[in-house]
C-alpha cells in the first residue's frame, strides 16, 4: 500500500529514551477500515510505537502520516478527532474522582461540541452500558465495565483511527471475549481503522487482518492472519513466538533463543 493512500503510515520511526533505543526504524502502513496488529513480547517496543503515534512521546524521529497529513510532535485538535486511544489497564486509565459522565463530557467540552447530553447517552449505549452507569465512579464499576467506559471515551469524538494498547489483557477471560466482540462490532458499524498492540496471538487472529511481529524494537516479519492461522511464519523468531503462545512446553523453553 502506498503511504499516501493509507489512513496511517509510519516511516522509519525511531524512539530513543536517553541511551535506550526502544524503537529502531519501524515502518508500516494501514489502510482505512483495516485492522492491523502489532505483536511481540514484553519490551519489544510495540506499545512505544503506538504511544509515539498517539503523540504521547516527544522523543521520536521519522515520519508519521495520519489520513495523508504529516503529524508533528505536538498534535492539534484535528488529530485528536481523527485518532483516539484505548489503554491497557482500565484501572489506571479512568480518573478515580471523575464520574463516567465527567469522563465522557470532557472531550466534548474541550472540542466545543454541543449536544453533550445526547452524545454521552449514545456513546454509553454504543458500548453496551445502560444510563444507570452514567453517574458512577470508576470504583463502582467492574474491570470490563471500566474498559467499556474507556472505549466510549475514545469513541465520543467520533475518530476514524483507534489505537488499542492491549485492550483486553488485564481483563479476565470471559470479559475479554465480550470486549473483543464489542470492538469487532464497533469497527463494522463505524468503519473504524484499528491498530491493535498485543502479545496475545489469539486476540490478533480474532480482530485483525494483517499483523507485524516486533522484536528488540524492529519489525521482524509482516504477515496476514491466514498465515498466522496456518502457523506458517518465515522467520525463526516468529516461529518461537508461536510456539511459546501455545503454552508452556519444557522442550520449547529449553530451546529458546535470543534474537537481535
Amino acid at each position: 500500500m502506498s503511504a499516501d493512500a493509507a489512513m496511517l503510515a509510519v516511516e522509519d520511526l525511531h524512539v530513543r529514551f536517553g541511551d535506550v533505543h526502544a524503537v529502531r526504524g519501524v515502518s508500516f502502513a494501514v489502510g482505512g477500515g483495516e485492522s492491523f496488529g502489532i505483536v511481540g513480547e514484553s519490551g519489544s517496543g510495540k506499545t512505544t510505537v503506538l504511544r509515539a503515534v498517539a503523540g504521547l512521546y516527544d522523543e521520536w524521529t521519522g515520519t508519521i502520516r495520519v489520513a495523508g497529513r504529516v503529524v508533528g510532535k505536538s498534535r492539534d485538535r484535528a488529530f485528536r478527532k481523527l485518532a483516539q486511544m484505548v489503554f491497557q489497564d482500565p484501572y489506571g486509565s479512568l480518573h478515580p474522582r471523575h464520574t463516567v459522565d465527567r469522563v465522557l463530557a470532557e472531550p466534548l467540552a474541550i472540542h466545543g461540541q454541543g449536544d453533550a447530553e445526547a452524545r454521552i447517552e449514545a456513546s454509553l449505549q454504543a458500548v453496551g452500558l445502560g444510563p444507570e452507569f452514567r453517574f458512577r465512579y470508576p470504583h463502582q464499576l467492574s474491570g470490563g465495565q471500566r474498559q467499556r467506559v474507556a472505549i466510549a471515551r475514545a469513541l465520543i469524538l467520533e475518530p476514524r483511527v483507534m489505537l488499542l494498547d492491549e485492550p483486553t489483557s488485564s481483563l479476565d477471560v470471559s470479559v475479554q471475549a465480550e470486549i473483543l466482540n464489542l470492538l469487532s462490532r464497533l469497527r463494522a458499524e463505524r468503519g473504524l481503522t484499528y491498530i491493535l498492540v498485543t502479545h496475545n496471538l489469539a486476540v490478533v487472529a480474532h480482530l485483525c487482518g494483517r499483523l507485524v511481529v516486533m522484536n528488540q524494537g524492529r519489525i521482524v516479519e509482516a504477515m496476514t492472519v491466514e498465515q498466522l492461522r496456518a502457523r506458517a511464519p518465515r522467520e525463526a523468531y516468529t516461529r518461537q513466538l508461536l510456539r511459546a503462545s501455545m503454552g508452556y512446553d519444557r522442550e520449547a523453553a529449553r530451546g529458546l533463543e535470543t534474537f537481535d
Binding site: 503523540g55 498534535r75 483516539q84 486511544m85 489503554f87 479512568l94 480518573h95 474541550i110 471515551r153
Partner: peptide, 26 residues
Amino acid sequence: NADFISAARMSGASSLRILFSHVIPL
C-alpha cells in the same frame, strides 16, 4: 504518568486543564 493523564492529553486537554481538573483534585 498515569494512563488517565495520557487519556486527557489524547482528548486534547491543555496543560492548565489537566493541572486543575485532573492533578489538583487528587
